[in-house]
Computed example of a mutant assay.
Amino acid sequence: MKPVTLSRQFIFRFATVLSASLLGSACAMLDPESRSDSARMTLGAGTPVAASGETPAVGTGRRDAADDPEIWADLADPTRGLILGTDKQAGLYVYDLAGQQLQFLAEGRLNNVDLRSGFPAEGRAQILIGASNRSAGGVSFFLADPAAPGAPMVRRWGFSATTVSEPYGFCLGRRGESFVAVMVGVDGDVSQYGVTEGAVGPVLVQERSFAVGSQSEGCVVDDAKGILYVAEEAKGIWRYSLDPATGSTRTLLAGAPSAMLAPDVEGLGLLREEDKTWLIASSQGDSAFAVWRVDGAEPAYAGRFSVVAGAGADAVTGTDGLAALGGAVGVFPEGLVVVQDDADTPGETASTLRSRQNFKLVDWRTVKLALGL
């Protein structure tokens, strides 16, 4: 039998096909959350507002990882405070109010984070922190002691399983003296729970469940008005009463797609300043943020802004989660907004490949000036 001789051209073609096949198989095995769902996102379409600072990029390099922030500041001493940020591939980051990292807690795939002060645990009022945990299928809870000197250290407190399709969105609230946790499943199924301290950690008691309709994530509770806002990514923002007796009754605050919101509709945050309350929503599809005043009988639309480069930080695109806190917060005398940035990339353009991600800090005064609030 004569030996078979393969041409260089055949070998090259075979290697190319094999490589493409292996690459395709590897890509198919990748968790879709490993890639940004806002790749090559449009740069900001709202009124420009300059960034005031930023955190370091999260440690999960070259993956879609940073997701949702939250802010705490000491009312008695607003120079004391924390910014929390989830890495949805790895855990929870804790930063100071200038964005410098203080802690990292490796808790698995934490998606959304929220907090409430004044939670009674271990014999004193503490900061209750909760985050949706996609690895374990429930809520990871943490505590921080506001009376501790310096920046309070965040520590693990416990875990509670939930009944939604897959833990995705999460928010905390207060109804009178009671604390409430809301878990939004990736399929748009929502469960609301009462949160109390048990013998060895947190206890959740389910109060109600309802369906939003399709994939949803962002949520926020207005404690003062007893309202729960939920973002249905392709449809808009819904208002529910926090009272579980109201079931699934709701009203549409703003639809999408519209002049206000370009899907996906993502993070939601509330900012209170004196007698005014503002709802801020991430319009991910055009890298903008829509604002409503919501302390009145009906919401009043106030405009849209986008975060452009400033203070050494690059522009913000494709935001998932956001947080806002009014009043003095560190060096921000009237309030702070923190938003996830899909690409921590200096000089990025509309064609920039998204990789590293972080959180940007925005002075609320610049937003008010830009929108004439």
Rank of each mutant, 00 (worst) to 15 (best):
I71Y: 01
A136M: 13
R40A: 13
A262C: 07
A90R: 14
L97I: 08
E33Y: 15
V154Y: 03
R8T: 12
G247R: 07
S7D: 11
D320K: 05
D68I: 08
N133G: 09
N358L: 08
N112P: 00
L143A: 02
A181W: 08
G194Y: 01
R40T: 10
V139N: 05
R80T: 08
R304L: 00
A45V: 06
P202Q: 13
S36Y: 10
P32T: 07
V182F: 02
F12P: 02
R250V: 03
V190I: 15
T86L: 00
S178I: 08
G138Y: 10
L325E: 08
S282Y: 00
A65K: 05
Y93H: 08
A370D: 07
V184W: 09
P56A: 03
C171E: 11
Y95L: 00
D342R: 09
W278M: 00
L115G: 08
V182K: 03
G327E: 07
G303Q: 00
F305M: 01
G85L: 01
A125G: 14
D64M: 06
V331F: 04
L84P: 02
R62V: 14
E298R: 12
D314W: 00
S214Y: 10
A297Q: 15
A28N: 01
K360Y: 00
I237M: 04
W278K: 03
L268M: 13
P333D: 03
R155G: 06
T317E: 13
S178M: 07
D342P: 05
V294H: 09
L102S: 09
G326K: 04
V230A: 12
M153S: 15
R174P: 04
R356K: 12
T317F: 07
G99M: 07
Y193I: 09
R174E: 11
Y95K: 11
W157Y: 05
A181N: 02
V94E: 06
G335T: 01
L270P: 13
A125S: 15
T42S: 14
G169V: 02
A323Y: 05
A65H: 00
G218L: 02
A302M: 15
D187A: 15
Q126S: 05
E334G: 06
L279F: 03
R365F: 05
P32R: 09
G158T: 00
A98V: 04
E207M: 09
L43G: 03
W157H: 11
G138I: 13
G185V: 15
D87L: 02
R356H: 07
A15I: 12
P149F: 09
G226C: 04
P149D: 13
W364I: 05
M41Y: 07
T352E: 13
L92D: 10
D74M: 10
S282W: 01
W238H: 14
E107C: 11
A106K: 12
P48L: 03
S214M: 10
C219K: 02
A66M: 06
A288R: 09
A39E: 15
E334C: 01
S38E: 14
T60S: 15
I129T: 01
L102V: 08
V113H: 10
G185P: 11
M29T: 15
K360S: 01
F332E: 10
G173L: 04
Q206N: 10
A262S: 08
Q215E: 14
T55Q: 01
L84Y: 10
V307W: 00
G285R: 08
V362G: 02
F142P: 08
G255S: 12
D77V: 02
N111Q: 14
G267M: 03
G81H: 04
